[in-house]
Design a protein around this nucleic acid. Structure first.
Lengths: 215, 215, 215, 215
DNA sequence: TCGTAAGCGAGACGGTACGTCGAGTCTTGCT
DNA sequence: AGCAAGACTCGACGTACCGTCTCGCTTACGA
């Protein structure tokens, strides 16, 4: 993924911000919204997410931590959900790895992937948000692009591999991406397990070669 | 999975019930707990979970729906979390499919798997609970056996396949199970996507044969 | 006014309490309302009224001072208005003075009257409440009996004077009562003035003899 | 009351206006204050006072109604209190009635008095303001001259009557004025009652002749 | 058979957070 | 400068649930 696209992909809420502010017609009148406050709120949100988790996060707490009135938060986000989405969609994405080998690129990228989940709020926030999707279609729409952006690097790796002829042209690339990311998802959601980088090599090896004996 | 084990696996709270009731010394004294109320609570919980989702579920609402006092709920479960866990761990598990073929068994079981997620509260409740694990170790302990039970059939299928020699003996069976379940987890959590049974065949085929060209 | 009647007159909210609690059907079920909390709330209300006045009184403040949850207040009173009404309607009324002389009884009673306004929250609370009546008919209904009770002793004094023949039988007693209480009301509301007991004698003398020269 | 005195009496806030504007040093610099806006604010205030009453009046609402920024209001008045005082002190006063008879002049003036209370915001606003006096000395100072101006005509009537010899020279004129205005004050504050012009005649008659039997 | 110990529905309790509103202040760009 | 607009922080509003606590009442057991 290249920088420009990444920015676009992981921060879609930026464009959304004006849209989400219903009452706003012209942005030219009145005192402009404080960019400082905006950032303080997002920072406080991420900090608290890391500390207490999504469900124990309160708008009241964020306001206090950010040194901001509650109304300033509600003026921008209708509830804690889109706030959290925007906060964590601002987390850094990761760059493409392109060393010319499917296996190597996958392993390298997965390691970064795990690293991101382990070292940022992603690992705890993402499951929380995911859990809300089923009953909150609005949220669902908001997270979708963020989630897609996270999978994107894998899609690119497979596309390059196909171009190089490493994989058959009739392999469903989305499915392939899901296959390598899948065990991580399972670990994260089904087991409570920690994401160790040691799981990467065997995982990629198995996904590439297949479970069946090769004959 | 055989019936007895399933019961044990999916209803661990049963054993917990007595433990959680601190004041209880002898089980013989006083009025016994109403099994009727117990069931009404679980039913109401499942119904509400389906309607409003996990995070909008309130103990107050469950009590009202079940025609029960709040204390009667708190006497049995310490909070809504274990309540929900027990409620949905009571959902039916599924039996082993054993037709002697790895591919066939996997596909059949996966289809049942998807069916269960689509037709019960599982599909919406599980993600909700999973999302809470990160910040709630107690819950984590409670869902673990339930989650494991859901993966168990796949482990058995692979064990039988290994015994038959369909797969190499050095394949990590847990990893293999994660590989086939993975894309479902990804669809459920990362995409907001619906779980279509049509995804089963390509998924199993790819996982078994591997992503790389066979040569 | 005799003790029994006074109690009934100045504490009409007591009877009203059940009525004002709309949701309540039977008082027999559930945990009974805490009389302790009730009293603590009224006490806190009176204390705060004296300290900060009616308009600066907040339900939040009362709750805090009383060591009570806000809901416990709102369960009993729909807003701060009826709360304040009940709080101050619980202030002690005063007993009849009956020494057999119109002039003496009036003066004595007026002095007690002023005393009450000066030494309790009455002097500050009553004007506040009165000021709200115009735009709050519900409140108006609530204070009416309380206000009437305060005027009642004067009505009785005049009734006895009429019975003794001190005043003509065609004097409108209500009007006469208003005449002697009037200057106090004027002082309280139109001037910001303090209510000095020294105003009593000239006032009663003038009201009894009339402003015109007697001839 | 003559025009000049009325203006001074009922619009004391005019003098205050400059004082309250702290930043103002020279009146010659910058854009002059809009007299239009000033009037619009006072009009909106009176209109809203009549509609929703004093305590439900908000500066925000006034600004909106007047098509004015909140700052423009706060630049002139420090809070809603002095604003309201000024707004209603601009209500018309009433002219002296001088027909040479104490009884006639009093009755005529009282009728106008009641008329004013019934037909303008006075009847609802005055009690509200009065209620705030006890806990707001600043306000108290502001209303005092306004309130005094309202009583002034009665003082003049009695002065003329004394000059004519209708009343004894040792009658306390302030007290006499309070006596005739008193029952109106009582009706307004103690009872929620409406001010009917029919109460005027009996009231004046009783006040003049006295409550006691003449003999 | 009867007391006693617990469970029961109901609902009040002290709290915490909700999302809204208004207070009074502070920028904007324009007049 | 003043102006309309509208953001800002702050704090109270009245509501909803939390998890705990009485109430007056079953209900079953064991003395």
């Amino acid at each position: 993924m290249r920088a420009g696209e990444e920015a676009e992909a992981v921060a879609p809420a930026e464009a959304d911000r004006t849209k989400s502010t219903r009452r706003r017609m012209t942005s030219s009148t009145g005192r402009p919204r404080s960019e400082e406050a905006h950032q303080a709120i997002l920072d406080a949100t991420l900090a608290l997410l890391g500390e207490v988790g999504y469900s124990a996060l309160t708008v009241e707490g964020v306001a206090q931590r950010a040194g901001v009135g509650k109304a300033t938060i509600y003026r921008r986000w209708s509830s804690k959900l889109p706030l959290v989405v925007e906060a964590f969609s601002a987390l850094p994405g990761f760059e493409d790895v392109d060393a010319g080998s499917l296996e190597h690129d996958l392993k390298e990228t997965l390691r970064k992937y795990l690293e991101a989940f382990n070292s940022t709020a992603l690992g705890t926030v993402f499951p929380s948000l995911a859990g809300e999707r089923a009953h909150n279609p609005e949220l669902s729409k908001l997270i979708e692009p963020v989630a897609r952006a996270r999978r994107e690097p894998f899609v690119r790796i497979f596309e390059r591999a196909r171009a190089r002829g490493e994989i058959s042209s009739d392999v469903d690339i989305d499915l392939a991406a899901d296959l390598v990311v899948g065990p991580i998802s399972v670990t994260l959601f089904f087991r409570g397990g920690s994401l160790s980088p040691r799981m990467v090599d065997p995982l990629v090896d198995l996904a590439l070669k297949g479970i069946l004996k090769r004959g």
